[in-house]
């Protein structure tokens, strides 16, 4: 198990280093001058020069790269050029919106998808199966921003029970803050749930066709016990893979939903930072996301080992 972990950790570290070089290089190549962007079309050359040296842009590329990496190793992500506040503070401010949103959506999608998937698999070929998979098909096909707008018109404009968007901050109390996350998490969860339900169903069907299931039934176990104890556990591997991917996506891939609900999340921070060429923020957030994907994958790998003892031995 420890060798398994060490190998995974090493892969993670290499991923991070490669990612840091790629991110830095890409942002150097993208056209756009952060100082010009700040000062606009009437800026005088002297003012631009002054701002560039304030931003540290007059230093050479390798110097800036190593300053950045060195700072991050010390826990200093640098200071945002546009917001002029520490990047780490910005990430934390946005993270306390994005992380709960991701967890809530993941919880919702799992709570919907797994029972539906199992239900459909256990009633394969029936109307109930076709109906739930038909619904899942629709869920995959509906764009989430469109579904989000539908929710807004229903709950905010018509019923007026939920705010149309925005985030009051956790300081405003748990309930107002959660209320602001209900519709966004639902909008995010629906397509995720649809995919997850289909994966659960097919994984279950595959397992249910295995010999050991027939053996278990032949031994006289009830359908229900076989389904929950033998089949579900073995069907968990593909489901966990998808869940891991979805969580990583939910952390920063939610830019469209964050825009529709004008939530101050990580996705919007990155988007805004890219359009404003606030490179230090983009680099910081991207590195954090890469790190979180690495961690999530590590957790998923460990969970694989937990559900499937054979993986523990093999590694």
């Amino acid at each position: 198990m420890s060798a398994f972990l060490a190998k995974r950790l090493l892969i993670g570290l290499v991923t991070l280093i490669v990612a840091s070089i790629v991110v830095f290089a890409v942002l150097e190549i993208v056209p756009g001058d952060p100082a010009l962007l700040m000062l606009g079309m009437n800026a005088t050359p002297e003012a631009l020069e002054a701002l560039r040296s304030q931003m540290g842009l007059d230093q050479s590329i390798p110097v800036r790269y190593f300053n950045w990496i060195g700072g991050m190793l010390m826990g200093d992500f640098g200071r945002s050029w546009t917001y002029s506040s520490p990047v780490l503070d910005l990430i934390i401010e946005r993270g306390i919106v994005s992380l709960p949103l991701a967890i809530l959506s993941l919880f919702l999608s799992t709570a919907i998808a797994i029972p539906v998937g199992i239900f459909a698999a256990s009633r394969r070929g029936t109307i109930a199966d076709s109906a739930s998979m038909g619904a899942a098909q629709i869920g995959v096909a509906i764009p989430n921003f469109w579904f989000a707008l539908l929710l807004v018109y229903l709950f905010a404009v018509w019923l007026r029970v939920l705010p149309a968007g925005g985030f009051p901050g956790w300081g405003a109390g748990i309930w107002p803050a959660l209320k602001a996350l209900i519709m966004p998490s639902l909008a995010l969860a629906l397509p995720q749930a649809a995919i997850l339900a289909r994966v659960t169903r097919s994984a279950m069907l595959e397992v249910l066709g295995e010999d050991y299931i027939r053996t278990a039934r032949a031994k006289g176990m009830s359908r229900r016990t076989v389904l929950w104890r033998h089949a579900l556990r073995n069907a968990m591997i593909p489901v966990l893979t998808i869940l891991g991917l979805q969580f990583a996506f939910l952390l920063a891939g939610t830019i469209i939903i964050e825009n529709v609900f004008y939530l101050p999340g990580l996705g919007r921070l990155v988007f805004q930072a890219i359009t404003q060429r606030d490179l230090i923020v983009v680099e910081g957030v991207v590195m954090l996301l890469v790190a979180s994907v690495v961690v999530v994958n590590l957790v998923v790998d460990i969970l694989y080992a937990a559900v499937d003892p054979r993986l523990r031995v093999k590694a």
């Binding site: 707008l149 807004v152 905010a156 007026r160 149309a164 825009n259 529709v260 609900f261 004008y262 919007r268």
Partner: peptide, 18 residues
């Protein structure tokens, strides 16, 4: 001053009175 970057979100924000 509330930041609403998306044009599609601006309309319901006004309609709902937010």
């Amino acid at each position: 001053f509330r930041v609403i970057p998306d044009a599609a979100a601006a309309v319901p924000a006004l309609l709902s009175g937010d």
